[in-house]
Every structure is written in C-alpha cells, then in structure tokens.
C-alpha cells in the first residue's frame, strides 16, 4: 500500500512538473495562474499522500493550510495583477 501511495505521489509530482513546464510557457497570464492553482491542488494531494507514507500526520495540516491559502494567490492575481495594459492575451 505504501508503495502504491509513493507511486501515486511520484506520478502526481511528474504531473506537476508537466504543469510547471506549461506554466513557464503558458500563452496568457491567466493560464499561468491556472497552472499555479493546479500545481497547488496537486501539491495538496502530494502532501496528504506524504503524510501517510512518511507517517507525519502533521503534513495534513500543511495540506490544509495550502488548500486554504492557495485561493489568495488566485484572487490577488485576478483582482490586482491581471491588467489589460500589455495586450498579451489570445
């Protein structure tokens, strides 16, 4: 079971790296932010898996906080950073 969880965690991480590559290239700012959010969610998933495999239940708290605060980045982005001044969107 632990091995499976590790495998899933690794798979999620690989997934995350994939998203990361997109985030670095993504065509519009919004895409990049979406990627960041996806990465946040994936990270949360990885953390809860790690909590189980590493026998560190506290990591669930980390996941919780991450899930709570991931929203802030997204909202800050939408409310503050995303401007239509440079005309870089598709």
């Amino acid at each position: 079971m632990t091995t499976l969880m590790q495998a899933v965690a690794l798979f999620l991480l690989a997934n995350l790296v994939l998203a990361l590559v997109v985030a670095a290239r993504g065509p519009t700012p919004a895409d990049r932010m979406l990627m960041a959010l996806l990465i946040g969610t994936t990270g949360t998933g990885i953390l809860v898996l790690l909590a189980q495999t590493m026998h560190l239940p506290a990591l669930v708290d980390v996941a919780l906080v991450l899930a709570l605060l991931a929203a802030i980045g997204g909202i800050a982005f939408a409310r503050r950073a995303w401007q239509d001044v440079e005309g870089e969107h598709d």
């Binding site: 708290d61 906080v65 802030i72 409310r79």
Partner: peptide, 20 residues
C-alpha cells in the same frame, strides 16, 4: 507542528483575503 507564527500567518492571510 504549528505555533504562533504559522497561526499568525494564516490569520494574516485571512485579513489579506478580506482586503482583496
């Protein structure tokens, strides 16, 4: 794990969210 700093940071994040 936990403590004043983490708690304070989460509270601060709440305030930031409210502001946003």
């Amino acid at each position: 794990p936990g403590g004043a700093f983490q708690a304070g940071a989460v509270l601060a994040a709440a305030a930031v969210l409210l502001h946003l």
